[in-house]
Simulated scan of single mutants.
Amino acid sequence: MEYRRLGRSGLKVSALSLGSWVTFGKQVDLNDAKTLLKTAYDSGVNFFDNAEGYEAGESEKIMGDAINALGLPRDTFAVSSKVFWGGDKPTQLGLSAKHVRDACDAALRRLKVDYLDLFFCHRPDVDTPIEETVRAMHQLVMQGKIVYWGTSEWNAQQITEAHAIARQEHLTPPTMEQPQYNMFNRDKVEGEYRPIYEQYGLGTTIWSPLASGILTGKYLDGIP
């Protein structure tokens, strides 16, 4: 397995990760999850990706139960969660300081870990000032609940603003962005983000590298 630094951070994650979107809690039960995680872990995968919005938290519960059952040493893997879609109530959505804190605490319980290695803002929130979100993430870092925080599907201007606020207010800046990146979706990663890779040391952990399976060819003859 090849391992790469996550942006300018010192964290080295496997070039391939195991994510649980639309699988864990829907198509994958605990027994299958244990098999998948063990196979990935034994092959050198050290990064497991999740989110509060995946099957309304059930995905994190299954991943947490599987990791716990396998007894994986906590210092040998990195696990992530994401905050944005936590429920239907106004306080369960977006990137307000309250929801960021609540979502982190809930993810820790579901994943059965003491801290998250990576915590992503799952989407930009036009109703919450970026400074509020940056400060909320910084507080989680200071509390030891998360190690690195980042964004998902933010544009370069929003990421730049987050870095500027962090620098001005002496807060922890975002380390990574998780965009969609595959042969059909290349512009943001290869074009829009290009200036901020060197300027801020932006790291990326992509989603849907196979375009939800389309690039495998398995849908050429219909839905299996």
Results as ranks from 00 to 15, higher is better:
residue 117 D to F: 06
residue 214 I to F: 14
residue 41 Y to T: 09
residue 119 F to I: 04
residue 4 R to G: 02
residue 88 D to H: 15
residue 35 T to D: 14
residue 98 K to P: 01
residue 141 V to E: 07
residue 129 P to K: 04
residue 38 K to A: 08
residue 97 A to W: 06
residue 30 L to R: 13
residue 224 P to N: 03
residue 69 A to R: 01
residue 31 N to L: 10
residue 59 S to K: 11
residue 186 R to P: 01
residue 94 G to D: 09
residue 114 D to N: 14
residue 153 E to V: 11
residue 163 H to D: 01
residue 26 K to D: 15
residue 92 Q to P: 11
residue 5 R to M: 10
residue 139 Q to H: 10
residue 152 S to A: 10
residue 115 Y to G: 00
residue 79 V to G: 04
residue 209 P to T: 05
residue 30 L to T: 08
residue 218 K to S: 04
residue 32 D to R: 12
residue 117 D to M: 07
residue 160 T to S: 12
residue 38 K to E: 15
residue 156 A to N: 02
residue 115 Y to M: 05
residue 161 E to N: 12
residue 174 P to Y: 13
residue 216 T to Q: 04
residue 69 A to G: 00
residue 182 N to T: 09
residue 8 R to I: 10
residue 55 E to I: 12
residue 185 N to I: 09
residue 128 T to H: 06
residue 125 D to G: 05
residue 180 Q to C: 10
residue 156 A to L: 03
residue 106 A to G: 15
residue 103 A to T: 04
residue 87 G to K: 13
residue 50 N to A: 15
residue 52 E to N: 14
residue 126 V to W: 04
residue 112 K to F: 01
residue 179 P to A: 03
residue 173 P to I: 07
residue 135 R to D: 04
residue 21 W to D: 06
residue 217 G to A: 12
residue 52 E to H: 09
residue 172 T to C: 12
residue 41 Y to K: 08
residue 220 L to V: 12
residue 37 L to W: 05
residue 54 Y to M: 09
residue 147 V to C: 03
residue 156 A to T: 08
residue 105 D to Q: 13
residue 74 R to T: 08
residue 187 D to N: 13
residue 17 S to I: 00
residue 194 R to W: 03
residue 7 G to T: 10
residue 85 W to F: 15
residue 18 L to W: 11
residue 220 L to Q: 14
residue 127 D to M: 11
residue 74 R to A: 02
residue 205 T to W: 05
residue 138 H to M: 00
residue 103 A to C: 03
residue 170 H to N: 14
residue 124 P to Y: 06
residue 20 S to V: 15
residue 130 I to A: 01
residue 207 W to F: 13
residue 143 Q to G: 05
residue 114 D to L: 07
residue 71 G to H: 00
residue 97 A to D: 08
residue 201 G to P: 03
residue 224 P to F: 03
residue 137 M to W: 06
residue 23 T to S: 15
residue 103 A to V: 07
residue 170 H to M: 10
residue 43 S to I: 07
residue 178 Q to Y: 06
residue 150 G to D: 10
residue 9 S to C: 08
residue 119 F to N: 05
residue 105 D to S: 12
residue 204 T to K: 02
residue 84 F to G: 00
residue 139 Q to F: 02
residue 106 A to K: 15
residue 2 E to F: 10
residue 137 M to V: 06
residue 20 S to P: 05
residue 12 K to H: 02
residue 115 Y to H: 14
residue 12 K to N: 03
residue 104 C to N: 11
residue 25 G to L: 03
residue 156 A to Q: 02
residue 172 T to D: 07
residue 99 H to N: 12
residue 29 D to S: 09
residue 168 Q to L: 11
residue 103 A to S: 14
residue 89 K to V: 09
residue 173 P to L: 11
residue 148 Y to N: 06
residue 138 H to S: 14
residue 112 K to L: 01
residue 51 A to H: 12
residue 114 D to H: 08
residue 117 D to Y: 07
residue 80 S to I: 05
residue 71 G to N: 01
residue 131 E to N: 03
residue 203 G to D: 05
residue 218 K to L: 07
residue 85 W to S: 10
residue 212 S to H: 14
residue 16 L to D: 09
residue 196 I to R: 02
residue 118 L to Q: 02
residue 160 T to G: 08
residue 164 A to P: 03
residue 206 I to F: 07
residue 104 C to T: 08
residue 199 Q to E: 13
residue 93 L to H: 13
residue 116 L to R: 06
residue 214 I to G: 00
residue 185 N to F: 09
residue 208 S to A: 15
residue 194 R to G: 00
